[in-house]
Structure formats: C-alpha cells, structure tokens
Design a protein around this nucleic acid. Structure first.
Lengths: 80, 80
DNA sequence: TGAATTTATACCTTTTAGGGTATAAAAAAG
DNA sequence: CTTTTTTATACCCTAAAAGGTATAAATTCA
C-alpha cells in the first residue's frame, strides 16, 4: 500500500484554508457536499483521490487542480 | 453523467506537452506506465480521474497536481 | 482536571475508474 | 486516392474510492 502523506500540496492547502475560516471537517463536508470521510482522507494525505471530489472541495476556496512544476517538497518525497 | 471537456487544464497540458515531444499516446502510455485508455480519457477531458494516475503522467513532464486559483477558462465552464 | 467538541480509525456496501482488447474513425504518409 | 499510423469508441472485468456509521483517540475549553 502506498504511504499517506499529510504534507502533500493538496492536503496541506485544504487543512490550512479550512482552519483559516475556522471551519470543522464536518462543516467543510456539509458546505462542499462531499462525504465527511473524504474530507478526512484528503487532509490526511490519502495518496489516491478522485479529481472531481477534490475539486468540489477546492472550488469552495476558489481553487482547482492544475499541473504545476514539481515542488521541492514533492521532490523530497520522491527521493530525488 | 457529467460532461467531458477537452479544454480543461489537465487535458490541455498533457496533450500539448506530449505533442511537443512528438510522442504518440501509445508511447506516453508506455513510458509513464499508465494504461493507454487512461491517456486517452485524460486527454479527452474525462471529468473524473484518480490523482495518482494523473500525477504518474504529469511527473514525466516534471509536473504534479496542485491547487491553483480558478482560471477564467474553468470559470467559464462553471457558468460563473 | 473533567466535559464537550473535534478529529481519527474501522467496518461494510455501492459505485465506478482503470486495464485490456477489439474495432472504428480520423489523420498522416506514400 | 490507397496504405499506414494514430486516435477514438465500445465491451467486460477487477480493484478500490467514497459514502455511511459507530467507536476511539485527541484536542479544546470551562
């Protein structure tokens, strides 16, 4: 099983934004319409998610998934 | 069923980069290790993909999926 | 401290993404 | 134009994501 990583870009972004708005995971789940379990797996860095669910959450923060140059953080994870 | 969109950021990016390198879908499939069908669905803008598969392809181009502010293109799609 | 709230883990079920392959359509090459 | 290559569509199958819920751990705050 691939390993989870709470510090991947998506997980980190979501958790940070949610906290900034002082929302609980339950509230974020309700407002975005995704399941509570999904919010949790997302924030805990589950390695495999469906893009439309992720975007459903990101949209709430005015964001979406797009390809960007690999970050140092990620490069470190890849052992490069 | 949600509608496909060949012009979404991920689809567009992948197709463009692949062409720049003069690769066929088959070649991209082989070198990245994802199925050929996946490459096709990706480039044709299937609305729902798994993030790790997408990243498996993007990695080949030195990129990865991250949250970015919503583009005008996407905003148009959302009818906003 | 202890009570209340928030987050994390575990189990089961339904749905669907992705792989493989075979075929058709379209594009490129000759 | 005809042939070859590339891309697109259609089918079945398997694996796993996402949902719901119940419980446990951790955090907050009185």
């Amino acid at each position: 099983m691939e390993t989870w990583n709470r510090h991947n870009p998506i997980a980190q972004f979501t958790r940070q934004r949610r906290k900034e708005l002082n929302l609980t995971q339950v509230e974020l789940s309700d407002t975005t319409g995704v399941g509570l379990r999904f919010v949790r797996e997302l924030e805990q860095g589950k390695p495999n998610l469906m893009t439309d669910k992720v975007n459903q959450v990101l949209l709430f923060f005015g964001h979406e998934l797009t390809p960007t140059p690999i970050s140092d953080e990620t490069r470190r994870d890849l052992g490069t």
